[in-house]
Design a protein around this nucleic acid. Structure first.
Lengths: 180, 180
DNA sequence: CAAAGCATGTAAGCAGTTACATGATTGT
DNA sequence: ACAATCATGTAACTGCTTACATGCTTTG
């Protein structure tokens, strides 16, 4: 489970509770995990079992007790080994492609509507992306190199939506041209 | 399960057996399903139960019997309804982003190696893409509109890898610049 | 008084994967 | 002799998702 490495990554900054990690994932623009309970708390149990993290339970007077997770040397070594492992190909999948592939069942107007709706979705997403980037949530910036990388990853995410939008617009125009 | 709609799509061309559908998925450039047995045969059972397809068993003398699946009117209606349904956002995920996000643990050389390996993967994939497109497998082309769409989808797939490659190269250069 | 925040966890399910299982036929 | 093709199917697993469950505190 690669989310375990992302958790180890966050813990390499400083100790966090499960609850805090959950928020880090939810806020992250370019981390594709939803940060749901099952994943976070389950992964933390697994990481503890493999001795990659240690737990410190902190009782609180008025609020529920919390478990603070700290990365161990073993955890740091595992993280580093994974960072050096062979990268995988990125994943790109768009259900719209499947819809378009059988658009022969649709009229010109229906097809145009489908592409238009896709464009709207992408535009909204691109705006959200830009807004999140503008607010600049939770970037570490411990060095020039690190902040360059984080900025670059976010820009890549935005560029993906923008490229897809440009593609949809182009296809829509070309379809219009052959239609009449 | 959206693969069911893709199966209905293929069956809207003409009847196929599970085995043939498997190959169609395996050969398709822009359909992100592996076309494994479980998915295909399982989906066909489900589609038959919901009366979206009908089965004709064909005995063969020397080869194993095969089941030829034909789309029903109900199946056609379901396919059309899905084609008209609200499109979803495309999915883009790259584990390399996660590796890069914690590259602060790596030396400049190690980081450069990671990006270089990513570039190699993407280059190889782009070449495969181009080759598959050149061979032009299984495009329907029942109309100018349909062949435009299929070509456009394949081009979008290729452009994705090329954009990602360009991004990786740019980041690598920028990192080199701030390194020394 | 309701909603949001703090903080943990569990249950159930979907979509997708690899690998296993069978067994005849055809090509190298 | 070995591999590939034809043709169906099952088992076991991974990763990820939504929704449920509890219960106290702070904010509007």
């Amino acid at each position: 489970m690669s989310i375990q490495y992302a958790i180890l990554g966050f813990l390499s900054w400083k100790p966090f509770t499960g609850y805090e990690l959950k928020k880090l994932f939810a806020d992250a623009l370019s981390f594709h995990w939803s940060g749901n309970n099952n994943q976070i708390y389950g992964s933390l149990v697994a990481l503890h079992k493999s001795e990659s993290v240690s737990i410190e339970v902190q009782q609180q007077e008025k609020l529920p007790a919390k478990k603070l997770y700290t990365i161990t040397d073993k955890g740091r070594a595992e993280l580093r080994a994974w960072l050096l492992s062979e990268p995988e190909l990125p994943v790109f999948r768009s259900l719209v492609h499947i819809q378009l592939a059988w658009a022969e069942c649709l009229t010109g107007e229906e097809l145009d509507g489908l592409l238009g709706a896709y464009e709207n979705q992408l535009e909204a997403q691109a705006i959200m992306c830009r807004e999140t980037m503008r607010r600049g949530t939770g970037e570490p910036a411990r060095s020039e190199r690190e902040s360059l990388i984080w900025r670059s990853i976010d820009e890549n995410q935005l560029a993906f939506y923008e490229n897809e939008l440009a593609w949809a617009r182009k296809l829509r125009l070309e379809l219009k041209r052959i239609e009449q």
